[in-house]
Simulated scan of single mutants.
Amino acid sequence: MTDVTSDLRLDGKTVWVTGAGKGLGRAMAVALSQAGADLAVTARTVGDLEQLAGELTVHGGKVLVLPGCVADSDAVRSTVGRITEGTGRLDAVINCAGVSPHFTRSERVTDEDWQQVLDVNLQGTFYCCREAGKVMLEQGSGSIVNVSSVHARTGFERIAAYAASKGGVEALTKALAVEWADRGVRVNALAPGYFHTDLSSGLLASRWGERIVDSTPLGRVGEAEELGGAAVFLASDASRYMTGTTITVDGGWTAW
Rank of each mutant, 00 (worst) to 15 (best):
V213S: 05
A171M: 08
W208C: 10
C69N: 13
F103P: 02
S141A: 08
W208N: 14
E107T: 11
A29C: 05
S201L: 09
R240S: 07
H59P: 08
T125N: 02
A31K: 00
V76F: 04
E138M: 05
A230G: 06
A97Q: 10
H151F: 13
D38Q: 07
L66G: 00
T245E: 13
T45W: 09
Y194S: 11
D38G: 11
T5Y: 14
G21H: 03
V117Q: 01
L122V: 03
S149Y: 01
K134H: 03
S78R: 15
M136W: 00
M1L: 10
W253C: 12
A255W: 10
W16S: 08
A53P: 12
P217R: 06
V46S: 11
V117Y: 00
R220K: 13
G23H: 07
A175G: 15
L39G: 12
A235C: 13
T2I: 11
S206C: 08
N121H: 05
R44L: 09
S165P: 02
V249H: 05
V41M: 12
V232Q: 03
T248M: 08
I212T: 12
D48T: 13
L10E: 09
E55Q: 14
R153I: 02
V187D: 01
K62W: 07
L10F: 13
E55D: 14
G47S: 12
Y241M: 10
T87C: 11
T243E: 13
L122Q: 01
G25S: 10
A175L: 10
S73V: 09
D3A: 08
T125H: 04
